[in-house]
């Protein structure tokens, strides 16, 4: 159970753009591959909830925020570069 909360990720996107969809797909794929069972993803569409953008200091989209474990890390882009996503999440590839 505790392992499931080890990674709390939040993906900020703006609507159903190509980049947003790519980021979603990439994130899910990477997480399933490296963090199976230890993560939780929350997808926030800023076009629906623009207030939330200020909270995590979102500038670029899509942005993936690693809320847990601390410290908070941000990964911007469509997450197509798997290696860098893992560096950003501080996850060693298995």
């Amino acid at each position: 159970m505790s392992a499931a909360l080890a990674f709390e990720l939040r993906l900020y996107v703006a609507g159903q753009t190509v980049k947003s969809l790519a980021a979603c797909a990439n994130l899910k794929r990477i997480c399933e591959k490296h963090l199976a069972g230890q993560y939780r993803i929350e997808i926030i569409d800023l076009t629906k909830n623009p207030k939330l953008a200020a909270g995590d200091q979102i500038l670029a989209l899509p942005t993936l925020v690693r809320r847990l474990p601390k410290p908070v890390k941000k990964i911007i882009g469509d997450l197509s570069n798997e290696e860098r996503v893992l560096v950003g999440l501080d996850v060693r590839p298995i």
Binding site: A23, A53, A60, I76, L79, N81
Partner: peptide, 28 residues
């Protein structure tokens, strides 16, 4: 007043992105 905080060390680029977030914040 909206403070946009950017910390290079916390940011990792992983592919194509844009500044839509900024736009949305500003627009909001």
């Amino acid at each position: 007043l909206d403070h946009v905080y950017i910390e290079r060390s916390e940011i990792e680029e992983t592919g194509a992105y844009d500044l839509e977030g900024l736009f949305i914040r500003l627009g909001h």
